[in-house]
Design a protein around this nucleic acid. Sequence first.
DNA 1: CCATGATCGACAACCTGGTTTACTATATGG
DNA 2: CCATATAGTAAACCAGGTTGTCGATCATGG
Lengths: 157, 157
Amino acid sequence: MGEAGPGHELPLRLFAAFRAAVDAVHDDLAAHGHPDLRPMHGFVFQAIGTRGTTAVELGARLGVTKQAAGKTIAALEQQGYVERAPDPRDARRKAVRLTPRGRDVLDRSARTFARVRAQWAEQIGPDRLDALEADLAALAPGEAFRLDAPGWFGPDR
Amino acid sequence: MGEAGPGHELPLRLFAAFRAAVDAVHDDLAAHGHPDLRPMHGFVFQAIGTRGTTAVELGARLGVTKQAAGKTIAALEQQGYVERAPDPRDARRKAVRLTPRGRDVLDRSARTFARVRAQWAEQIGPDRLDALEADLAALAPGEAFRLDAPGWFGPDR
DNA sequence: CCATGATCGACAACCTGGTTTACTATATGG
DNA sequence: CCATATAGTAAACCAGGTTGTCGATCATGG
């Protein structure tokens, strides 16, 4: 018990599991018409969501400046994942919404994450998986929907 | 039970816990003479280790090209974290070793990770924490010491 | 009703950490 | 002894961040 081993093993295992799930998603995406998406883009698509957003709001969600968010939006628009339309109620704003192609990414991601979860439940048992999730929630409370990984990683702050 | 919620919640919780541990380490480092280190550098220092390395080997461990590893080494040398010496047995090689300042980063990181682990054990109980670690090892087997996060994140492959 | 200030999106210049391509110097094996 | 492989370096480029600036458009208090 408590065979702690080197202290960094647990964090690395947390990261490895996260990464395994994300890799499963991107393997599926690459095999179905979205070969150029990187792990980082997962956060971006989640942050845009089915309801759409704006550059400022996206920047806040991703933890980056609005300029960086604007560049990301322009790139995704170029690739046909999002479209921009003027906001009729505020001429300064431009609404950013997922195209059908963009929504396909979100749908596929959700399905693959669910598939991974089911597979994990098979491997360690649903009860253990629920316990794992509950314990994680206790250790990093409330932070479930923080999507600001792009700003967290990366050189600047 | 098994209230799965949206499928991406579990991966995000894994990442949030990983991030909480890494943030604790970098808060401590920033407070003790290493304010400019980013989360990414943690992987670099682990990959160099107390035994030293070379540019090619470091690149392999981090999952980047030897050129990128060389740039990273040059930057860390500039900041006094590593030093380079010619390898007497192979004039092509340059041995890269941590300076005392670099070893301080490794030592502090290990201590803080251990402290975080102890705190987590208090919060959910040592038995639950051991179970969590064992389950994670089952879900992402063998991948405990993969340090190639820099290459995994980031634009190119 | 309008002047002032806040907000949204864009542009430019720059930084960091990647990549590819190309090169030199040194080992190594047939 | 030479052909090939390997270690490190360098140049040009790219992606995704940053700051600073700006024009256009709200929103508000006098």
